[in-house]
């Protein structure tokens, strides 16, 4: 059984069929990429999986359970964490505090215990803090812990956001265009990082523009065009697929 199984999912916005009957599978422990030209429906697909939109039709199963139409926090509870294309860090909070919010699902102190600051909540706070620092170190940004998150450089914000997404010990992480705005050297580092995330046992599903990143690290690549899936295979076969070449390079030129 695949960890994530998307079948026949469609989503329409007014007159635009953003996603049209798309299905794919992500096996446990793999890196899978969804690529496609601008407006192909990649981000919509992501928002459907992570619960930000409910599909009009189709089914999304995670670890066997249907999750379509669940609220984002419920999807997160199932073990799917995500980052955003246009980085969404919590303003007015330090980088460390941002990452600590990522641990929300793995801690349980509530209103009453928080107000009374019971001994177990203090222990829990210390654990959350320690785990968050560990993940910031994993991403090489531990020295930025006390900086205001939204004041950091772009690449650093990306790293903090990724640390936040990983802090809940998810089974799968969705990365929405993680290489956007990075230069070639940073993209190469990101590629290594994604493999290290996979090596921690976390399944990775990413949406990406940058071919060099996708082809180097993905076990499987699905290609979207105008809301439909036109290819889904290992990177080599996808690169040779005439339909994919047509979509990416245009018919006449090749």
């Amino acid at each position: 059984m695949a960890l994530l199984e998307v079948s026949g999912v469609s989503k329409r916005f007014g007159g635009v069929q953003a996603v049209d009957g798309v299905g794919f599978r992500v096996e446990q422990g793999m890196v899978k990429a969804v690529i496609g030209p601008n407006g192909a429906g990649k981000t919509t697909l992501f928002n459907l999986v992570s619960g930000f939109f409910a599909p009009d039709r189709g089914e999304i199963r995670f670890a066997g359970d249907p999750i379509q139409g669940r609220r984002p926090y419920q999807v997160a509870q199932k073990g799917i964490s995500r980052t955003f294309q246009n980085i969404k860090l919590f303003s007015g909070m330090t980088a460390l505090e941002n990452v600590m919010v990522g641990r929300h699902l793995r801690s349980r102190s509530g209103f009453v215990s928080g107000m009374l600051r019971l001994p177990w909540t203090r222990r829990e706070e210390a654990e959350v803090r320690e785990k968050s620092r560990e993940l910031m170190a994993f991403l090489g940004v531990e020295q930025l812990a006390d900086a205001e998150a939204t004041s950091l450089a772009y690449g650093q914000q990306r790293a903090v956001e990724l640390a936040r997404a990983l802090c809940s010990d998810p089974r799968m992480v969705l990365l929405d265009e993680p290489a956007a705005g990075l230069n070639m050297r940073e993209t190469a580092e990101l590629a290594k990082l994604i493999l290290r995330i996979r090596d921690r046992g976390i399944t990775v599903l990413l949406v990406e523009h940058d071919m060099s990143l996708v082809m180097g690290i993905s076990d499987e690549v699905a290609v979207l065009s105008y809301g439909q899936k036109i290819a889904d295979s290992d990177p080599r076969s996808v690169q040779r697929d005439p339909q994919v070449v047509k979509v990416y390079l245009g018919e006449e030129e090749c």
């Binding site: 992570s50 930000f52 609220r71 984002p72 926090y73 997160a76 964490s81 995500r82 955003f84 969404k88 860090l89 919590f90 303003s91 007015g92 909070m93 505090e97 941002n98 600590m100 919010v101 929300h104 801690s107 349980r108 102190s109 509530g110 209103f111 215990s113 928080g114 107000m115 600051r117 909540t121 829990e124 706070e125 959350v128």
Partner: peptide
């Protein structure tokens, strides 16, 4: 506390807090 952090997160970026 954890709750206060979650509240500030809602204030800072609600959909990210949700996610």
């Amino acid at each position: 506390s954890r709750v206060g952090r979650a509240l500030r997160a809602i204030h800072g970026a609600e959909d990210a807090a949700d996610a």
